[in-house]
Amino acid sequence: MDILTSAPQAPRTNAHCERVIRTLRTEVCDHVLILNEAHARQVLTEYQRHYNHHRPTKPGNNDHPTLTNNPR
């Protein structure tokens, strides 16, 4: 295991990393028995695909309610 230090220009990086690690622990590691490093990489790759594909952060089109031009 390597220790990575966060850059002084990005002080909130550590908080983001801790949140990602907590999410992975609760959503992946509590449900899957990891056998070795190759299996861990495979599971994390599949979770990354699922997380980015099935849970988009932005709407696919511009039909978002806050972006519509409603005349008042």
Results as ranks from 00 to 15, higher is better:
residue 22 R to V: 04
residue 60 G to Q: 09
residue 48 Q to S: 10
residue 67 L to T: 04
residue 3 I to V: 15
residue 34 I to C: 08
residue 16 H to C: 08
residue 7 A to S: 03
residue 17 C to A: 12
residue 28 V to D: 00
residue 61 N to M: 00
residue 64 H to N: 09
residue 58 K to I: 10
residue 12 R to A: 07
residue 9 Q to C: 01
residue 17 C to T: 05
residue 19 R to S: 15
residue 47 Y to V: 01
residue 17 C to I: 08
residue 5 T to L: 11
residue 62 N to A: 13
residue 72 R to L: 12
residue 64 H to V: 02
residue 66 T to Q: 13
residue 8 P to Y: 02
residue 3 I to E: 12
residue 50 H to G: 12
residue 43 V to K: 01
residue 50 H to K: 12
residue 48 Q to F: 08
residue 25 R to W: 05
residue 61 N to F: 04
residue 7 A to E: 10
residue 21 I to L: 05
residue 3 I to M: 06
residue 15 A to M: 04
residue 19 R to Y: 10
residue 33 L to R: 03
residue 8 P to Q: 03
residue 13 T to L: 13
residue 63 D to L: 08
residue 65 P to Y: 12
residue 61 N to I: 00
residue 31 H to W: 08
residue 50 H to E: 14
residue 16 H to A: 15
residue 39 H to L: 00
residue 72 R to W: 09
residue 68 T to I: 12
residue 39 H to D: 01
residue 46 E to G: 06
residue 57 T to I: 06
residue 47 Y to W: 15
residue 8 P to C: 02
residue 8 P to G: 05
residue 13 T to S: 12
residue 54 H to A: 09
residue 26 T to N: 13
residue 54 H to Q: 12
residue 66 T to G: 02
residue 72 R to G: 03
residue 13 T to N: 13
residue 47 Y to D: 05
residue 38 A to W: 00
residue 19 R to C: 09
residue 23 T to V: 04
residue 24 L to N: 02
residue 69 N to Y: 10
residue 23 T to M: 11
residue 64 H to D: 15
residue 53 H to V: 14
residue 32 V to W: 13
residue 17 C to K: 04
residue 28 V to A: 01
residue 2 D to F: 06
residue 25 R to F: 01
